[in-house]
């Protein structure tokens, strides 16, 4: 029987929970544990957009801009948040507080526009509500 510890993705998630990202030495260890070249482990990690090989901001802000949310004005929300944080897609603030990502569907298409702050999902957002949430993070 496989334990969840034997499952690569679960192991990687756990490492990320500990460090906030997957440090190089951990990739070296993963390569040994899963008996794969370390380049391959690195390449596998880089495939997934929720896994990071560099430190991110304390809060990862993900805003969905897929079709359904787009029809609910996710673009305006996005512009307001970008403006507030002064960040483009994929950037991290210099104080390491925020990382901003424009993402595809988050599965709350009936409640758009939506924004995730780390694990937490906020739905039916207005610009005002979104900025309030971000303010509370500071």
């Amino acid at each position: 029987m496989k334990k969840s510890n034997d499952i690569f993705l679960e192991t990687v998630h756990n490492i990320q929970q500990t460090y906030g990202y997957i440090p190089e030495r951990e990739i070296n260890q993963l390569a040994e544990k899963f008996d794969q070249p370390r380049a391959k482990i690195y390449g596998a990690i880089k495939f997934y957009s929720m896994l990071y090989t560099e430190p991110t901001g304390k809060y990862i802000i993900r805003i969905c801009d897929s079709l359904s949310c787009h029809l609910k004005d996710s673009h305006d929300l996005l512009l307001a948040v970008q403006d507030y944080l002064g960040l483009e897609d994929g950037e991290t603030s210099s104080d390491q507080l925020f990382t901003l990502e424009i993402v595809e569907c988050l599965g709350h298409c009936g409640e758009g526009p939506v924004m995730m702050v780390n694990d937490k999902m906020y739905t039916e957002l207005t610009k005002g509500k979104a900025l309030e949430i971000l303010q509370d993070c500071k």
Binding site: E24, I27, R38, A39, Y42, G43, A44, K46, F47, T53
Partner: peptide, 15 residues
Amino acid sequence: ANSARGPETEVTTFQ
């Protein structure tokens, strides 16, 4: 290894 995906897919080395 191949890294990233979609249009960013590229061949790269460790880190």
